[in-house]
């Protein structure tokens, strides 16, 4: 099954509410995905700076990192976000590579990405989602079908700088596509089908395709059921498989564009009573963006 929630704010006045609203949407989607949850949130950026979201085993002392690297660090349970001037990226990655206990979850000027095993409410609470603010967020509640219930198997998956992917469905040719992508140098951590979709998009972007072109290429190369939502620095995109096996509902008002696997997830959003509600069409790439 799985549930997807996405919220893209047009009205900056709602930005302090982004985390709370997203947590509410994920909570409703517990029925569709109770085993793990995750979210990517696009908050403020510091000009010339980059953020890495890191994950380590529970109890790891992230706050010892700033002393090592001379950078700012915000701890969120077993994740932490470090921020530093972009020119130091190579140096910091080199140091992090010497810490096998640390995984780099995401890279971006704005995107922070958190995921874990457990009920969506518990995951949101652990990371402090309610208090987070930003311009847009996408989240996922997982009911595993294709691979194990692990933090690595939870969504979103990072596809590149400030980009991520969540998926409702299951891909049937992921082993095949994974083999092809591995030959092209794309690395995989799990046997998860969505990681292959993320790797596919990352590969297309590496080859110079734009994100919408990468999604169109996914329509040709990925076989199976999917509703994908992709997060970008300036907005988000939606793609459903041509048979439209997996549900998707959108709501648009003057203040926001919202995505939910079901309308129930949108029912608490402000002004939903008068929102334009519609179902995205199959095999059509949608984007909602604003100027960066």
């Amino acid at each position: 099954m799985c549930g997807i929630a996405g919220l893209f704010l047009k009205n900056p006045a709602l930005e302090p509410e982004l985390g709370r609203l997203t947590a509410g949407m994920l909570s409703v989607l517990t029925d569709r995905g109770p085993d793990s949850a995750g979210f990517a949130i696009y908050g403020a950026s510091t000009p010339g700076h980059l953020k890495l979201t890191l994950r380590a085993s529970a109890g790891f002392d992230f706050l010892a990192l700033p002393a090592k690297f001379d950078l700012s660090c915000a701890e969120h349970d077993d994740h932490a976000v470090i921020s530093f001037p972009a020119e130091r990226e190579a140096e910091i990655r080199e140091v992090l590579a010497r810490h096998p206990e640390i995984s780099i979850v995401s890279t971006g000027a704005r995107m922070e990405l958190f995921k874990g095993v457990g009920l969506p409410d518990d995951v949101s609470k652990r990371f402090g989602l309610h208090k987070m603010s930003g311009s847009h967020a996408i989240g996922h509640t997982r009911m595993a079908t294709e691979s194990a219930v692990t933090t690595q198997g939870a969504h979103p998956f990072s596809t590149g700088t400030d980009q991520c992917l969540v998926h409702n469905g299951s891909l049937s040719n992921h082993n095949d596509v994974r083999r092809v992508l591995m030959r092209e140098g794309i690395k995989f951590e799990t046997q998860n089908d969505t990681e292959v979709a993320a790797g596919f998009i990352a590969y297309q972007l590496r080859e110079g395709k734009k994100l919408d072109e990468a999604l169109h290429a996914a329509l040709k190369s990925l076989d199976g059921f999917y509703t994908f939502v992709v997060g970008t620095e300036t907005g988000f995109g939606v793609l459903r498989d041509p048979v439209a096996c997996k549900p998707a509902v959108m709501a648009e008002t003057a203040d926001y564009v919202a995505f939910g696997s079901e309308y129930r997830a949108l029912a608490d959003l402000p002004g939903i009573e008068t929102a334009h509600i519609f179902e995205p069409e199959p095999a059509k790439v949608y984007f909602w963006e604003r100027a960066a």
């Binding site: 079901e262 309308y263 129930r264 997830a265 029912a267």
Partner: peptide
């Protein structure tokens, strides 16, 4: 009968 607050319930 009138049902209020259906909120997308199944």
């Amino acid at each position: 009968w009138s049902v209020h607050n259906p909120r997308g319930g199944h």
